[in-house]
Amino acid sequence: MRRFAVFILVIVVAYAIFIDISKGTLPEAQEKSDEQPAVTASTTETEPDAPFIEKEVKPGDTVLSIVEKENNGLENVPINVIVTDFSTLNAGLKPEDIKYGQVYKFPTYEHEN
């Protein structure tokens, strides 16, 4: 009986690993194919007054890392200002909701010397 229980356990674990590898269990892997762009351009929208750049997000990028790269470091700009500016430029999108492969607007800041 013990051998049969171990055999069943091995089969269940093998099946779980097979499903995980073949189909995946992360929601991003399943949503990627039918996903719509995060930011859609419209001719009726007006461009914001704040300076910004449009950039495609790569795997591992965060809003803060992209803004720091594009602005050569940010010593004088608080993180909450960056988050607020990003959300304003992208119709209320939270920084933690960005997805790689999509293009977003990132704020740029002038350096004071």
Rank of each mutant, 00 (worst) to 15 (best):
P48C: 04
L93R: 13
T43V: 06
T84F: 08
S42W: 10
V83I: 13
E45F: 02
P27Q: 02
I98H: 07
I53G: 03
A38K: 07
G24D: 10
V10S: 15
S42T: 13
T84S: 14
V57L: 10
I11T: 04
D34F: 15
D61G: 04
P48F: 03
R3F: 13
D85A: 15
P51M: 07
P27N: 06
N80G: 00
P78L: 01
I8S: 12
F106M: 08
E47W: 02
N72S: 14
S87Q: 15
A91N: 12
F86C: 14
F4K: 15
F86G: 04
I11R: 03
V13D: 02
E28A: 13
L89D: 02
S22V: 14
D97H: 09
E47G: 04
I66L: 09
P95R: 03
Q30W: 11
Y15M: 10
A14Y: 00
I21P: 00
Y109V: 10
E110Q: 09
K105G: 02
T44R: 09
A91R: 11
S22Q: 11
V63D: 11
V67L: 10
K94G: 02
N90C: 11
T62V: 01
E68F: 13
S65I: 08
I53R: 11
V39E: 05
A50L: 06
M1Y: 14
L26C: 07
E110C: 03
E70F: 13
I66W: 09
E110N: 04
I17T: 08
E68W: 09
I17L: 14
A14G: 06
E54N: 10
D97A: 11
E68T: 09
T43F: 07
F106T: 07
T88H: 13
G60L: 00
K69R: 13
K58L: 13
T108A: 05
L9G: 06
S33N: 05
F86T: 13
S87W: 03
E31H: 11
L93W: 02
L26R: 11
L89V: 01
I82H: 08
N71H: 02
P107A: 08
L93G: 09
T88V: 10
D34Y: 08
S22L: 14
I53D: 09
V13P: 01
K69I: 01
P48K: 03
S42Y: 11
A14L: 02
I53E: 01
I19V: 15
E75G: 10
D97I: 00
V13N: 06
R3H: 10
L89Y: 05
E56G: 04
V39M: 10
T46F: 01
S42Q: 12
K105T: 05
